[in-house]
């Protein structure tokens, strides 16, 4: 932990390439504002070739830790790379991709460096004292907190799609190969298999037709599928339908996927604050609910008080007719 101003530069790390590029976009902006360097870190095996891509997306310098032992993410091994690098070079800011692996990695890095960590920052800025300020959703979606750092390095984690991926430029940078000395992993991988998820990522959907507890039977998803196909969208749900009823494997909301489609149609979905936190950035929100008091109407652009079993098929028919 350090309170001195010796810490310099912004670092970006994520094992997810897309997320690393998104953070480089934001990182470049902050680095230019602070007149400092933007560096990226790549950890893996046979990954040296990827450094030039990160430079095109804004990195001044790319540290590469390349070793067969690092072919797959392992938190003890990856942590020791980041820790040794940070101890030697004292960065001011470290942005870590807030993935299932990245967030615990950032938490442990912050602990080992005896510094603070602000997770899941959807916005980042620098205040008049040069401190990093992160904005994050808290209290289950009831509030947006603005959080600043007291210690350095300032470690923030950044969720996927919080920032736009920048346009690649024809720029070059410096590649630094790291001498790798890692600690022995404390956990052993037994098996890895692809998750059975819906064919497409819900975060990438242009339109989402989503249902809540108002959907009475699993088979009735077909109604939503039909509407989704008309609006070129995907079907999703609120948490209870996935976690409690097990009708879906994924859901939208604070604890599930955070989405920002052009169109979000909430059917029979009450709109608890945790769900709303996951759809806040949608362009247009439509609510269909029998209960005129449902909170979803408060955050909808268009609201229909009615039975989803009547409205959804009728909307599908109407759109089909008008768009023909």
């Amino acid at each position: 932990m350090s309170l001195l101003n010796e810490n310099k530069g912004i670092w970006v790390y994520s094992e997810s390439r897309d997320l690393a590029l998104e953070m480089l976009g934001k990182g470049r902006e902050l680095a230019d504002q602070m007149k400092t360097q933007l560096n990226a870190i790549i950890i893996g095996h046979d990954v040296q070739g990827e450094a030039s891509e990160l430079m095109k997306y804004g990195a001044d310098k790319v540290y590469v830790a390349d070793d067969p032992l690092m072919a797959r993410f392992q938190s003890d091994v990856y942590l020791s790379v980041l820790y040794n690098l940070a101890i030697n070079h004292k960065p001011n800011i470290i942005l870590v991709g807030s993935t299932k692996n990245g967030k615990p990695l950032a938490a442990r890095l912050a602990t080992r460096l005896e510094t603070g960590c602000v997770p899941d920052c959807n916005r980042l800025s620098v205040d008049e004292n040069g401190r990093l300020v992160g904005e994050r959703i808290t209290y289950g979606g009831n509030a947006i907190a603005r959080v600043a750092f007291i210690t350095k390095p300032q470690i923030a984690t950044v969720p996927a799609r919080a920032f736009e991926k920048p346009e690649p430029q024809s720029r070059q940078g410096q590649l630094v190969k790291l001498e790798v000395k890692t600690e022995t992993p404390k956990t052993e991988l037994v098996e890895a298999k692809p998750l059975q998820t819906s064919s497409a990522r819900i975060e990438e959907a242009e339109a989402i037709v989503s249902c809540g507890r108002g959907l009475a039977r699993k088979e009735d998803k077909a109604l939503l599928d039909e509407l989704a196909s008309i609006v070129h969208g995907q079907v999703s749900c609120s948490r209870p339908l996935a976690e409690d009823r097990k009708w879906f494997t994924e859901w939208v909301g604070l604890s599930g996927h955070k989405v920002k489609p052009k169109l979000y149609i909430a059917c029979g979905l009450s709109g608890v604050i945790q769900h709303v936190a996951g759809i806040r950035d949608s362009k247009v929100i439509v609510a269909i609910n029998k209960d005129p008091e449902a909170p979803i109407f408060e955050i909808a652009d268009y609201g229909v008080v009615g039975d989803l079993y009547e409205i959804v098929p009728a909307l599908k028919d109407a759109l089909e007719k008008m768009m023909r």
Partner: peptide, 18 residues
Amino acid sequence: KIEVIEALAPKMERKKVK
């Protein structure tokens, strides 16, 4: 090691057309 500057309810400006 961190400091919450403020925590405010988010503004949701929606059309709310019934």
